[in-house]
Design a protein around this nucleic acid. Sequence first.
RNA 1: GGCCCCAUCGUCUAGUGGCCUAGGACACUACCCUCUCAAGGUAGAGGCACGGGUUCGAAUCCCGUUGGGGCUGCCA
Length: 473
Amino acid sequence: MKSTLRVRFAPSPTGYFHVGGARTALYNWLIARKAGGSFILRIEDTDDSRNAEEWVEGIVSALTWLGINWDEGPYRQSERSELYSKAVERLIVEGKAYWCDCTREEVDQRAKERGGAPGYDGFCRDASKQNSPGSALRFKIPRPGQTVVHDKVRGDVVFDHGNLDDFIIVKSNGSPLFVLANVVDDIDMGISFILRAEEHLPTTPKAILLFQALGAEELPIFAHVPVLVNAKRQKLSKRRDRVAVEDYREMGYLAPAVVNYLALLGWSPGDDREFLDIDEMIELFDIDQVNHSPAYFDEQKMQHFNGVYIRELLADEFVNYCLPFLEKNDWWVGNVKQLETFSRVAPLVQERVSLLGEAAEMIGFLFRAEVEIPLELVDSVLRKDIKAAQIIKDVGEIYRGLQRFTAEELHDVTRAYCESIETPLRKLQAPLRVALTGSKVGPPLFESIELLGKETTLKRLSLASELIGTPSQ
RNA sequence: GGCCCCAUCGUCUAGUGGCCUAGGACACUACCCUCUCAAGGUAGAGGCACGGGUUCGAAUCCCGUUGGGGCUGCCA
């Protein structure tokens, strides 16, 4: 069956793998899975000077994490140079390419003198030059002519060859340029559908011309999806925007949440649904439904998605996912006792965070030897009025006399105390929470106190009392 | 500069000529719930860039303007 869909994701390993690439990979993967075709991973590393092995590893691990698996590859263009040489030979023999020894400066200079648009003027086009040190091979654009790109998302886009320069396909150091390697590989690998970011649309006519020059029997179908942009609506770039997939993983994003959010950037299932699992995406994804305009990558919304996914986790799953984040803290030793405490508090945390990383921050007070109360809170909460001092003292006394140190019991006695001093519980919990946890927010207070244990609780309350009594400098 | 792409609330989007008084989601505001914070619930504010056509009828089709973006590399 020659008609089987074959798509490829072809990143270049020149930096952190960013979310825009991830979305392109995802779309390719979705149409492959939907059609029962093949998804091929190809590393475009023809530019020696800019590649690094670590970036390849980053791409591989990010895709794996996201659950985007490949059926073939990763192929590396750096290992396929023979193929490109053959193609080049053919183009030269057939007179479809020529050697050019113009320097960049010369090209610019002539463009300047012309007073016209920058770009190559075809100076060596008919000079029949031989390959010499410093010369590059250029593709001879058929003139006059037009090439129309039949794009699945843009429709037909016409390019006049008058606007296309004789572009370089082999650098003077002998290595192929990406358009060439790209096309040669796409032919060799039988790629039938090319889905990539819109930024590649302007080079597509060149690619098509190469496909034809190399005798490709059939052109692949092209689809150029809109790029992802930053707040200033510029194309997301790994240099100026912090958008590495790896970063999000480290912040505590769940892969399915990221995938779900990314899928919706430029596509929607056509109704009001926003939460889709992988199978639904595969079933519903349709290139014809993809939007035409750039999409802003909204981290805030992605975080919301993540919160939803976190809350859907089973309690055990949540605990396990949190472990790596707990391990980053020096107060975490991961013994049985800590594990048990965390398991008990985890459900209370799970519904309060939207990032796994937040979980650790929220429960640190349970494991730290001492609380550090920010000065700002000492002033604004504990020393705000004399009542806070009194409350902490009184509550300490009441707790000291408690036999059963449970959340329920603590709640009851505290509420009773509140009534006796005619203060609502919500007012009273603030100084208590700050004294015990060092923060104004956190898991429900009485559960926290129970987990903290009587001894620690009493100790922290008395420490807080002392702190209040000690004037700050 | 040249070529190309794009244009619905701040953002992501639904909308494929009448169902649109333009729907949903994030963010925002208010209220409810409540031991804090979240979550949840209810309500609210907020948009078809502009101008011409076509049509009985246009967010939807056409043209122009404006605005944004991409490409214009011996990067991918």
